[in-house]
Each structure stands twice: as C-alpha cells, then as structure tokens.
Amino acid sequence: MTRWLKENLWRHITGVVMCLFALFPLYLVVLSSFNESGSLQVSSFYPKDISFANYQVLFNDERIPYLTWMKNSLIISGFVAMTSVIIGAASAFAFSRLKFQGKRFGIQLLLLIQMFPAILALSALYVIMERVYKFAPGLGIGTQAGLILVYLGGAMGVNIWLLKGFVDSIPAELDEAAKIDGASAMQTYWQIFVPLAAPVLAVVSLLSFIGTFNEFILARLFLIEVETRTVAVGLQQFIGGQFSENWGPFAAGSIIASIPIVVIFLSLQKYIVSGLTAGSVKG
C-alpha cells in the first residue's frame, strides 16, 4: 500500500489537478448555458434550476440567426476542407513522387510563403477583393464565395505541406510497380495513390475543416451582413457589444458549435497528433 502510494500518488494528484484546470472553464460554460442570469459566474457549483431559456433564445430570437450562422460555418468549412484537400493532394503527390526541375526550390518557396503571417496580408487581401467586387459582385468582399477563395489560397501551403508528410510515409513500391507496368503519372495518381491515401486525405480534410471553422479575423473582415456570418464571428459580436455582455446565449451557442469539432477531434486523436508532429501547430 505505501509502495503504491509512493509510486502512484503523485501521478494521480498531477492528473486530477490538471483535469480540474482543464475542465473548469468548460464546466462553467455548461453551467451558465443553463443559467438565465447571463454572466460567467459561479453562483453554485452545481446547477440549481436548469433553464433552457438560453438555448431557446438561440433558436427563436430573430436578431440572432444562430442556425444560419451554424449552416454558414458548416458549408464554408466543409467546402474548403474538401476542395483544398483535392487540390492539395495533387500537389503533394507531385512533390513527393515526381521528379522535375526546381522541385527543391518549389518546396522551399512553399515553406517561405507559409511563414508570412497571413494576418499581415489582410489589408492587401481586402484591397484586392474590393477590386474584385467591382467587376464580380458575387466573388468580392462581403461574399462567402470570396471568403472561400481566400481560405483555399491560404489552406494550400499548410495542406500541401501536411499531405506531403503523409504521402512520404506511404511506401513507394506500389506506385513504382505501377510505373514499371506502364502506367502514366495520372493513372498512378488516380488508381494507386488516391485509394491508398484515402484515409490520410480524410484526416487532413477534417483538420482543414477544424482550422477553417476556427478562423475568425478574415471571416469578420469579409462577412459584413449578419445573415452571412460564420458562427465564430456571430458569437463574438454577440458578446462584443451589439447585445451587451450576454453570456448565457453565448455559452449555449458555443457549446452547440463546439460539439461537432470536439467529436471529430476526439475520434481522430491518434491521426491528428501524428499529423501535428509532422510539422504544424493548430491555430
């Protein structure tokens, strides 16, 4: 017994303390989402009277198109995740498997432009998309299509880089065999590589989904109309002043918005960690 204490007690103490630290804000959010008072307070550590008023506000209040925001977020993130991985996978394949001039330069350039902080190109992006708006109002500033295009551009660097790491780890024997059998690069790509890499592509697209779902600054800059906003922007404005500090509905809203992300994350934990160690940090 004492031996057990000596060996394992500190482990459990560390674990419990850190778990409490990790859970504290989350528990508080859950608590205040069921509390009508509208602040992030701990009036008691257990819910006294559970009220669903905050959730009802989200779904019924006309000033808060929460469902539309959620839909916008899911559509934008989903589209970006799928498209950027389809496009990125082709580039990653070429970087990983094809031989051509300037490959090393290309990879270095990719690394380099990835280091330019995207936020700092914000003003330039704004000016460009403002000009696009002049001749194509459906694509320029203020539109979701424009935002998606910008996201796709931004996702390229990270995704090609991440995918390349994964592709490198897929044994090359198979596609070399296909090459010997006379398959062209395109055939190798579609018939050997894509089926083999499908799980990896799925993981990277989910990572991309999470990243886009989390994006805030560009979305806020681009989406001016309340109805076009994403859930992150919508909820931020919600406590930012427009409705004064209204934590109850915010808490309810962020819980609902977080559930899909947390579920994706927990179920893919293993892959995500290996993907992250391959060279990127979640934003």
Binding site: G15, M18, C19, A22, L23, P25, L26, L28, V29, L40, I210, F213, N214, F216, A232, L235, Q236, I239, F250, A251, S254, A257, S258, I261, V262, F265, L266, Q269, K282, G283
Partner: peptide, 16 residues
C-alpha cells in the same frame, strides 16, 4: 479529459 481544451474551437475558449 486532458485533450478537451485542445479540442475546443479556440475562438470560443478564448472568449470564455
């Protein structure tokens, strides 16, 4: 439990 903070969308956590 320990990975939960990492799994939450960070925008929400920061605002909370």
């Amino acid at each position: 439990i320990l990975v939960l903070p990492y799994a939450m969308p960070s925008v929400m956590s920061i605002l909370i």
